Amino acid sequence: MNSPDPESLFDQIADALAGPGFIVLDQPLPESLISGLIRNLQAQQPVLKPAGVGRQGDYQLNQNIRGDAIQWLEPGDSAVTEFLSWMDTLRLAINQRLFLGLFDYEAHYAVYAPGAFYQKHRDAFKGNPGRKLSTVLYLNPGWDLVAGGELVLYDEADTTQLARVAPECGKLVIFLSEDFPHEVLPATQLRLSIAGWFRIKAL
């Protein structure tokens, strides 16, 4: 990673999660890793599938709610393997500092065509086992800020915007899955990212 002191980066993330509950990091991963992920995503484009909403019996495709296409990440490609290893190191570091009981990490590429969006939603609901921390890593070299496509985080009461994050390449967002309604605004150009979740086990 770019940081000369990974432990200080992990301290910064843990402090933010214990405080406001979210953090936006500009370039925490190596540029070489970001470049490798972009190449892998470009190779994955033919197998991307429309994303759905809901789980199991409630699962459905509805582009009026979300319009991205996805492909789940699996170890194999060197960049993907390195990224998943980085996230596992982060998982262990967060557990050591905050005792959250994170036990695994899942992630997928998310590709939004121009005009596509994801309506306001939560990644998890209070008291339910499963997703505890959400992550978004952006893979958009030379992103034009006037193109839109921001991630907007709202407070738990869903009344106030807390952050509006442009999808600039290498930027990483981490937030508590239960606490922050959020949405993805439409953009005028293709928008690439990795969406991921650290999960906890059911009691």
Rank of each mutant, 00 (worst) to 15 (best):
H121W: 08
T81G: 07
H108T: 02
S85N: 12
T159D: 10
V184C: 04
E106D: 15
N62C: 05
A195G: 14
I34F: 00
G19I: 03
F198T: 04
S134N: 01
V146G: 10
G115E: 08
A14I: 03
L172S: 08
L203E: 13
P129A: 15
S3F: 11
P20R: 15
G54T: 03
A43D: 07
A113G: 04
W72A: 06
L153T: 05
W86H: 13
W86M: 08
C169T: 13
L133A: 04
I200C: 14
V146K: 15
D5S: 15
W143G: 14
Q161H: 00
Q60S: 10
V152T: 13
P114N: 09
R122K: 14
E31P: 08
L29T: 07
I34C: 10
F22E: 03
I174D: 05
A16C: 12
A107H: 02
G36C: 03
A16Y: 07
K49G: 00
D144Q: 15
I174P: 07
R191K: 09
G67Q: 06
Q119G: 14
S193C: 02
R164S: 15
H182G: 04
T188E: 07
I70T: 13
A79N: 05
A18L: 11
L172A: 08
R191F: 07
E106F: 06
D144A: 15
A93F: 08
L137R: 06
L98F: 09
L61V: 11
P4M: 10
S177E: 01
K201L: 13
Y118K: 00
G54H: 09
L176Q: 10
L176K: 07
I200R: 15
V80N: 06
Q63W: 01
V184F: 05
K49E: 11
G149S: 06
L41I: 00
E7K: 12
A51E: 01
R131D: 09
K49I: 02
F10L: 09
E74A: 09
I23D: 10
A147D: 14
K126R: 13
L98C: 07
Q42M: 01
L37Q: 03
L162P: 10
R199K: 15
S8V: 11
E106C: 08
A163W: 03
K49N: 01
P141R: 08
L61D: 00
T89Q: 13
L102M: 06
G54A: 12
T160W: 00
L92Q: 15
Q63G: 01
A116Q: 15
V111Y: 05
Q161D: 02
P46M: 02
D144S: 14
A202D: 14
G115L: 11
L176T: 09
T188N: 13
F175G: 03
N128L: 13
M87H: 12
E74N: 06
V80Y: 01
D58V: 04
D123R: 07
R131C: 10
F22Q: 02
G149C: 05
K132W: 01
Y105R: 03
E82D: 11
Q44Y: 02
D15W: 08
E178G: 05
T135R: 02
N140R: 03
L192W: 07
L100E: 04
S3E: 11
A163H: 05
N128C: 01
P75G: 11
D144H: 13
V146M: 11
Q63Y: 05
